[in-house]
Write a protein that binds this DNA or RNA. Structure first.
Length: 203
DNA sequence: ATTTTCAAT
């Protein structure tokens, strides 16, 4: 009964899942989100390791007439359901960081913004691998989220490597960037900057 | 080049 120290095994993402979902070239019909929390102490951010993890969006398995399936849940809303369970001290200030494979859709962005408005003890940073442009108004959504105080950024090799080390079951192997990682990251960063500044490049 | 877009036609 001395097998493991008080260190609880945290679930880790397998390597393929990470690569398949965070590579900018692939566009899987699912979203993964890695999250972590830090507590503000003077000028420093202290990691709160117990609330570190990852999740993915939830889908209804079977849809049948007359059956009330569990509603689909985008990854961001899964996170919003999770945060209250952490019971963070409202007298202190925390920073929640998430690394997400698709940027928030307009609805999620709006809900995140509302959440930040109601939780002034929390700050939010969003690092996205890709920009989710499927739904009309995605630009406005991202701007709204930024206006609510969130920091929104495209993941660079630095964040990919951090996620690999922190959330992936990497078996001790170092992060090997995929082809064109930096190229896509720079391209998407430029796109996001334009969006957040209110420029439109597409009609 | 406009793209497998938080699926399921």
């Amino acid at each position: 009964m001395e097998a493991t120290p008080a260190l609880e095994a945290r679930p880790l993402m397998d390597e393929d899942t990470f690569r398949e979902n965070f590579s900018q070239e692939l566009k899987p019909h699912k979203t993964y989100l890695c999250y972590e929390v830090e507590l503000q102490e003077d000028d420093a951010w202290i990691p709160v390791d117990e609330f570190k993890g990852f999740l993915r969006n939830q889908v209804t398995k079977h849809r049948r007439v007359g059956t009330e399936g569990k509603p689909r849940c985008h990854a961001e809303l899964c996170l919003l359901e999770l945060i209250p369970s952490w019971e963070l001290d409202k007298e202190r200030h925390y920073r929640v960081t998430c690394f997400i494979s698709w940027s928030p859709c307009p609805d999620c962005a709006s809900q995140l913004a509302a959440f930040l408005g109601k939780n002034s003890h929390l700050s939010l940073r969003v690092f996205a691998s890709r920009i989710y442009t499927k739904f009309a108004g995605y630009e406005t959504g991202l701007r709204q989220l930024q206006a609510a105080g969130a920091q929104i950024t495209i993941m660079t090799s630095e964040e990919f490597e951090y996620c690999w080390k922190t959330f992936v079951d990497h078996q001790g192997t170092p992060f090997l960037p995929w082809d064109d990682l930096d190229k896509y990251s720079k391209m998407l960063s430029k796109d996001l900057k334009g969006i957040l500044q209110g420029n439109w490049t597409w009609s």
